[in-house]
Amino acid sequence: MLVAVLGRNRPFAVGVAALAFAALSTGGEALERAGAAREIVLVVQAVFVAATAVAIRPKAVAA
């Protein structure tokens, strides 16, 4: 669902978003091997999603 949000419901963009999320998750495993905690990846993903949520907000925001 979060991937769909990130891709703004456009098929091609969803593909890119899914790839980015997958890359982050896989990178997390590498981080784990390097001795860092992989959970930081969740934080990065959350920031992505929140930023997208702000970016796609309805235009007519009251001042």
């Binding site: 959970e39 934080v43 959350a46 999603v49 929140a50 309805p58």
Partner: peptide
């Protein structure tokens, strides 16, 4: 900012849990 509350809620649930575990590690 008028961002979607459901999406932001999920982001907080995901990011908050993740950050908490990260910090504990």
């Amino acid at each position: 900012l008028g961002a979607d509350e459901l999406i932001c809620g999920f982001a907080v649930a995901l990011g908050g849990s993740g950050l908490a575990i990260f910090l504990s590690r």
